[in-house]
Design a protein around this nucleic acid. Structure first.
Lengths: 138, 138
DNA sequence: GTTCCTGCAAAAGCTTTGCAGAAGA
DNA sequence: TCTTCTGCAAAGCTTTTGCAGGAAC
């Protein structure tokens, strides 16, 4: 997606398309590995030396409120963020700490939702060992 | 479950059944609403005035490591804990903040797990509005 | 020109660490 | 007795807040 498109996306959501917000959103779109706030900060500070942690948090909150970004609450230590806002699953490897995405059939997922509850977001997650780590420990 | 039984459960896991650990575990078993560390602390301090936050964290970590308790990473602000260690689902109400448990068929859940990944724990969670809050806003 | 955003510094809140004394085996 | 656990105080870390200057419209 070009920077111009991102500007348009943010504008449509009623939020000002500042350079910082575009940078954060662009980073999330191009890094689907669910970076933490700190990871985003470190990466962006290299590219744009004037960039504060506060701005990362501000931008992330704004993007989450606008529905463009999701918080992934799989890890207790830090918050992780994800620009994929459709329902999908996560796999946290307890050895290497990586978070993997996988596709989830929305219809099947919705079948789990108890009746009477109005769902706005759904997620499946597993904790275990990823194929890479399984190979190394063998 | 009697206190004696709890002592046995902890002993079997190879951890010392101290009064504090038993109290924490007992609290979690009798409060299935996924209390946070702080909630547990406040409740237990009333019952046993000498009880430090450190001990809560120590005990919780020990119980989690022993596999008797699960961390529920649905909420970003605080950690929540759950003595139900079988696979099940959680529903977080975005209005009242309550976390609801619901049953999940393990076999169906496992079908979501991508091949090559070795799952040790599974969870489905939804965010939305619970029946109570839906009623009030109508 | 007005409104909203950024970014520094400082604070806040949850959790962990170090260590001396106490409890459990 | 020896090991392990508790609990106080202090530190550590991520995240939030207050506010002045700056960018966007």
């Amino acid at each position: 997606m070009s920077e111009c498109d991102l500007t348009l996306v943010l504008s449509k959501k009623g939020i000002r398309p500042t350079q910082q917000r575009i940078a954060v959103y662009e980073y999330l779109l191009s890094h689907p590995e669910h970076p933490s706030a700190d990871t985003i900060y470190r990466a962006l500070v290299e590219k744009y030396p004037v960039f504060s942690r506060t701005t990362i948090y501000n931008s992330l909150n704004t993007l989450v409120e606008a529905g463009l970004v999701r918080q992934v609450n799989i890890c207790a230590e830090e918050q992780h963020f994800d620009a994929t806002t459709s329902d999908h699953g996560h796999f946290l490897c307890s050895k290497c700490g990586k978070i993997y995405d996988f596709e989830v059939d929305s219809v099947s997922l919705n079948m789990f939702c108890p009746s009477g509850f109005e769902k706005t977001q759904g997620d499946v997650f597993f904790i275990g060992v990823c194929p890479d780590c399984k190979t190394f420990t063998k």
